[in-house]
């Protein structure tokens, strides 16, 4: 099996992790129109919750994954309801709202540190067996990650195109005013968006933890700018753009790791982010009515 093919395989795994995270961030940005700088910590918390459930409470690891994902969603919902929504209702300028999420990221990352400590932990799936698919070779956990991402993206697509709440999210992303005029309770949709965004972040954090085998309290925060790269490359606020951006960034970073040097993986993501901002700030998929 060629090294290049394997790097494509790794790229698909990274893209899967990234897609979950990027779509969650992008959806929330689309609906609320501000970036959440504490999003990286959502990933961290998701992973630690899953770790506690499976290691501390000896829950089946798959069950732990589901429960942790849901808890993170609820946490995001509560953070919006009791912290961010009061600020937006007050009409705080964007500049300050961003500082609030920035401060929140410090709070959450240190809360994680206080609760779970600085040691490396790992989240393992049982029965690691290699599986060959044509030129690709995947472990069970890698297949699981790709599977989870594929199912999640499919479910999201159905949510956004088939269900009323998903369509309402897209409608709000187009125009909050018109959504209100149409009788959509925008507060409720915003709450749901935070719930969903939190779930996706939690899930992304869990699969990221599985993928990198060991993690620390700052691993989500450090991954944040790679998520930004995917979101901006795809077009801010567009969930499908985020998926595409995740695929591009995932493949580019993993292939460059093989072709150049694995130490420069992040630099490649960063270079793509900067190039996008300079050359096509609206991203690959431009959303009508969204400011670039």
């Amino acid at each position: 099996m060629s090294v290049l093919a394997q790097s494509v395989g790794f790229g698909l795994i990274t893209a899967s992790v990234l897609a979950l995270a990027a779509v969650g961030l992008s959806l929330q940005f689309g609906v609320t129109n501000y970036i959440n700088f504490a999003y990286g910590e959502f990933l961290t918390i998701g992973a630690y919750l899953a770790w506690t459930l499976s290691h501390g409470l000896h829950l089946n690891v798959y069950l732990a994954l589901v429960v942790a994902t849901l808890i993170m969603g609820v946490l995001a919902l509560l953070l919006n309801r009791f912290l961010l929504r009061p600020f937006t209702k007050k009409g705080v300028p964007l500049l300050f709202l961003l500082v609030v999420t920035f401060g929140l990221s410090l709070f959450l990352s240190n809360l994680t540190l206080a609760i779970w400590g600085p040691d490396f932990q790992s989240l393992d799936l049982p029965r690691e067996v290699p599986h060959a698919f044509g030129p690709f070779l995947f472990t069970t956990s890698q297949l699981t990650i790709i599977g989870i991402a594929a199912v999640a993206m499919g479910a999201l697509h159905i949510l956004l195109t088939r269900t009323e709440i998903g369509k309402a999210m897209r409608a709000m992303s187009d125009s909050v005013d018109l959504a209100q005029i149409s009788g959509i309770d925008t507060d409720r949709i915003t709450s749901f968006t935070w719930l969903l965004s939190g779930c996706l972040a939690g899930l992304a954090g869990i699969v990221l933890a599985i993928n990198i085998t060991s993690f620390q309290p700052n691993f989500g925060g450090e991954f944040l700018f790679v998520i930004f790269a995917a979101v901006i490359l795809g077009g801010v606020g567009s969930p499908y753009g985020a998926m595409l951006g995740a695929l591009v960034i995932g493949l580019a970073t993993e292939m460059s790791a093989v072709l150049i040097n694995s130490a420069y993986k992040n630099d490649v993501a960063f270079a793509l982010l900067i190039l996008t901002l300079l050359l096509r700030p609206q991203g690959i998929i431009r959303m009508a009515g969204k400011a670039a």
Binding site: P86, V100, G103, S105, L106, F107, N110, L113, A114
Partner: peptide, 21 residues
């Protein structure tokens, strides 16, 4: 060893938000 610095940082983050509110 990490607990005190962590709590301190939590206070800083909380302070940031509290001042803005």
């Amino acid at each position: 060893a990490e607990l005190i610095p962590a709590l301190r940082n939590m206070i800083v983050g909380g302070l940031l938000i509290a001042v803005l509110w």
